[in-house]
Simulated scan of single mutants.
Amino acid sequence: MIMHQLITADGNRVADGLLDGFVSDIDDETLRNLYEDMVVIRRIDAEATALQRQGQLALWPPLLGQEAAQIGSVRALDDDDFIFPTYRENGVAYCRGAKMSDVLGVWRGTWNTGWDPYEVNMATPQIIIGSQTLHATGYGMGLVLEGKETLAIAYLGDGATSQGDVHESMVFAATFQAPVIFFCQNNQWAISEPVGLQSHVPLAGRAAGYGMPGLQVDGNDVLAVLAAVRWAADRARTGSGPSFIEAVTYRMGAHTTADDPTRYRGVTELEEWGAKDPITRMRTFLRNSGRLDGAAESAIAAKADAVAAELRQACINLPDPDPMSVFENVYVDGNPILELQRKHYGAYLSALGEQPVGSATAQGGAS
């Protein structure tokens, strides 16, 4: 299978018969913006990792090394396309306009979800591996029934391709020609299990068995990822159904901050992929082509620092939640079992000398 590429690891622009036409409109400013996005989300990731190490976050799923896959894909979408992410697409959330406090709340434990999905057209982080593909397919089938020209995109990792939910999603999407993009970030590791153990063929090669095209793209090449998702989006919008994209990238950090990747992968592997770093290659390409100078780099670095400072401040200032708020937004309508649990928990807090906040929740009323 051909891995499509537009910018090589050493920063050279190359031609690709399929992808070139989908980025013919990309100007110098857009290229710099793609680079800026990657620099900013890497800085966000580093700051959030530091906050977790300092005890300010309970957990954080690093995206280090996957910046091109996230930025290239989200910048290829229209604002009204709906995104169904995993727990690692915090760079996508940033580009969609999610507030830093909303991004961090779930990881600090101050709220049980993230941003408002309808404000940014992006579902909240999905922890259950692969289940977001079901949601995306259902949403896409709804778009067909309503005659809309928007699409759904489901982000998933290589490990998720071993889950039954993902297979069922792709069968339904292909059967009903749903406008869905299955965007797989193959970062080589499903926690501690290498992708070669899960599949002896390229993941994109599996797509044909479901009745949809599969495309393998260099996931560390932001321009190629942008073009690949535009290709899939064009198919979705014109009634040609779903597509599967395998963005070949690498998780340079831990699976989460609770993980120690040195226990299952060697130093040489990290060095090999470090030479393919998505930000370094884009910087080299922009410098060599005269599209990026020192002043522009300094401005981008300053913006990244400002966003990181905003993130830190937002995290530290997140208020502790009302303990009774755990019962809110569980069901649309009242549920007697939930109300009984609410009553018992309120009594427990009272026994500890903690008065539940809010008259409705304190009295066990409906949320």
Rank of each mutant, 00 (worst) to 15 (best):
D277E: 06
I181D: 02
T238K: 10
D27A: 14
N335M: 10
Y118P: 04
A224V: 07
Q54P: 13
G346T: 05
Q52S: 07
S192V: 00
A360I: 09
L143E: 02
D79N: 13
P336C: 10
F176S: 06
A9H: 14
R237C: 07
S101M: 09
L145H: 15
F82T: 00
E89C: 10
G346Y: 05
S240L: 15
A296G: 14
V222Q: 03
L270Q: 15
W115I: 01
M324T: 00
Q70K: 08
Q56R: 14
T8P: 10
R291P: 04
A314M: 07
I316L: 14
L340W: 13
G138S: 12
A362W: 03
M122L: 10
I71Y: 04
R312T: 12
L226V: 05
E29L: 11
G358D: 03
T257F: 11
A228L: 01
L51Q: 04
A360P: 05
R287S: 13
L59Q: 07
V180P: 00
G147Q: 09
L151K: 03
L104H: 00
Y139Q: 00
A236M: 08
V74E: 01
N121I: 03
L203F: 15
P261M: 06
Y250V: 00
A360Y: 04
N112T: 14
S298L: 11
N186I: 01
L197Q: 15
G105M: 05
A299D: 14
L223M: 09
Q66S: 07
R75N: 07
T257M: 02
G55W: 08
P242K: 02
W189I: 03
D259C: 02
E269A: 09
I127F: 15
L156I: 01
R53E: 06
Q216A: 15
A204R: 01
E269S: 06
W60G: 06
P321M: 05
D20F: 12
P261W: 04
A296L: 10
I7M: 04
G164C: 05
Q216F: 11
I129R: 01
A236R: 01
G253I: 07
L104C: 09
A296E: 08
E269V: 08
A299M: 11
T262M: 09
G157S: 02
T150P: 01
Q52A: 05
V92R: 07
Q70Y: 14
E67K: 08
W111G: 13
G17E: 15
W115A: 03
G358M: 04
S325G: 10
G109F: 11
F22M: 04
R283T: 04
A309H: 09
V330E: 02
L311W: 13
D305K: 10
E269I: 02
N186H: 14
R13K: 11
W189N: 06
